[in-house]
């Protein structure tokens, strides 16, 4: 049975690796997007947008590998939970990747001398970094497969929500506008804020699935 054990562990390790790859790429995208926006770095921004393609590829690979494992191994217990959680997580991760490239797109627009722009963009960068920090916590919890840590990470979603409230406030009070472009830009800021807040929810979801892997529970967090 030794051989079978190694084979199974190897197959799960491969799956796990794919998952971690996806996770890392998403983390990179979020951070790079934030930096690109902060530094108005068009080049970096385009890189982020381009690499979203790979994140989508990875999601397909994870899903296919999951199906393969389910068919051939008929897994039970921890093994099975890991695979199901992986499928669910990778959906969330792909979403997060999209949001990161939306954020990066901001950096490709023309800069403005509007002071509101500056304030909003700074806040957005901070919010994105907060997301990245929360995500980092989730990644650690995943690698350690620790349910308590995951619960702690999920609590940080409140911070992200507060960021959104703050930015929304600024946006609402940012009138009057000189041009239609400016008004359009405000809408864009609004949506990006929303998406960055969604990112926090998605990380919370990922935390839930980490807890599922560990003990099969699906608690209501937040």
């Amino acid at each position: 049975m030794e051989k079978k054990t190694i084979q199974l562990d190897q197959k799960l390790n491969f799956f796990h690796e794919l998952l971690l790859q996806t996770v890392q790429r998403v983390e990179e995208s979020i951070i790079k997007a934030a930096i690109a926006v902060r530094d108005h770095d068009k080049e970096l921004a385009n890189k982020v947008i381009a690499e979203d393609y790979f994140i989508n590829q990875l999601r397909d690979m994870v899903e296919n590998d999951a199906v393969r494992l389910l068919i051939s191994e008929s897994p039970y217990g921890h093994y099975m939970r890991h695979i199901i959680a992986g499928i669910k997580m990778v959906t969330a991760l792909e979403r997060m990747g999209d949001y990161a490239s939306h954020l990066a797109r901001l950096a490709t627009h023309e800069t403005n001398n509007n002071k509101f722009d500056e304030i909003i963009i700074n806040n957005l960068v901070e919010m994105a970094m907060a997301d990245a920090a929360m995500f980092r916590g989730a990644i650690d919890a995943l690698i350690k497969e620790n349910a308590e840590d995951a619960i702690e990470v999920a609590k940080k979603d409140n911070e992200i929500d507060n960021f959104r409230l703050k930015i929304n406030d600024i946006i609402l009070n940012s009138g009057p506008f000189d041009s239609i472009e400016q008004r359009k830009k405000m809408f864009e800021y609004y949506y990006i804020t929303k998406e960055l807040e969604r990112m926090g929810d998605l990380i919370t979801t990922i935390c839930k699935w980490i807890i599922y892997i560990v003990n099969g529970d699906k608690p209501r967090l937040n």
Partner: peptide
Amino acid sequence: FKPRDKRTEDYISG
């Protein structure tokens, strides 16, 4: 799905 005993877990995981 989630056996209580680790030995059970190991057996069903093959």
